[in-house]
């Protein structure tokens, strides 16, 4: 099976400050993958590199078998990578209605206006917000805004969906509802999912695999349940140590021994 995303020795610097280096990673098609790590470890930057919004300082980035970025250069522009992204602040255009937001997401395609409208309506229906099409983002609740952002991402029919900590401001009820929506959409649309999060529980609710970024390196990588059972990285160890015992059992994490206290 070919990986849909391949990172080979990727490094990134900002103003001569190294964010990360030698990041190599394969993400398989259809996989639901989490990039975990503490704040400021560079996980959002890595997602921007995959999206094509920024170029790596060094290394190669391949998307679906095509060279997408090489050291300092973007070879495949963001809108030609067959991916969509939900930003941390959702990036909804406030002066456009929900329907216009989703429809403008198709500006890069050669579809006729009628087809665009149909695609937008179908994306809104898939996210179960068809009735909100005439409203502006400012008139929606946080959960509804999330769904609009998801609908805009899906309308381009991407192969790869990138989520940059999009649920950080939602309450638990809204979050779990959206987790279910995203899992369903991933199955229905055969999407590969990459989620950036600092919350392993959120990652566990959405993803099967994960990589943990620490101090500019991948500290560990693998199946998420296995990582939570035998954490190696500081981030995961601290997280698991703080889990209440019943939750740890439910999440598949190892029971905390008395010594660890």
């Amino acid at each position: 099976m070919n990986p849909i995303v391949q990172l080979k020795n990727i490094a990134k610097e900002f103003h001569a400050v190294e964010i990360f280096r030698d990041i190599s990673l394969d993400i398989q098609s259809g996989e639901r993958f989490a990039l975990l790590g503490p704040s400021g470890c560079g996980k959002s930057t890595l997602l921007r590199l995959i999206a094509g919004l920024d170029a790596p300082t060094n290394g190669e980035l391949w998307i679906d078998g095509q060279a997408a970025s090489l050291a300092g250069r973007i070879l495949l522009p963001a809108h030609q990578r067959g991916l969509a992204m939900v930003f941390q602040d959702l990036a909804l255009w406030p002066n456009l209605t929900v329907h216009q937001n989703v429809e403008l997401g198709l500006a890069g395609t050669s579809l006729a206006r009628v087809q665009r409208r149909e695609r937008a309506e179908s994306a809104l229906s898939a996210c179960r917000i068809a009735e909100l099409g005439g409203r502006k983002p400012g008139e929606l609740s946080g959960g509804q805004q999330q769904r609009v952002a998801l609908a805009r991402a899906l309308t381009a029919e991407p192969k790869l969906l990138l989520l940059d900590e999009p649920f950080s401001s939602l309450d638990i009820a809204n979050k779990s509802h959206l987790y279910a929506v995203i899992r369903r959409l991933c199955t229905d649309f055969h999407l590969t999912l990459i989620v950036v999060s600092h919350d392993p529980l959120e990652a566990a609710a959405l993803c099967s695999h994960a990589a943990v970024l620490e101090r500019g390196r991948i500290a560990e990588i693998g199946g998420l349940q296995a990582l939570l059972r035998n954490p190696v990285s500081e981030t995961l160890r601290e997280f698991v140590a703080q889990l209440p015992v019943p939750t740890r059992k439910e999440s598949g994490a190892p029971a905390r021994s008395e010594e660890s206290n």
Partner: peptide, 15 residues
Amino acid sequence: APASWALAGALHGVP
């Protein structure tokens, strides 16, 4: 205006 507005436009191929 959040930078993400323009970046979202770039991702979706908005000229």
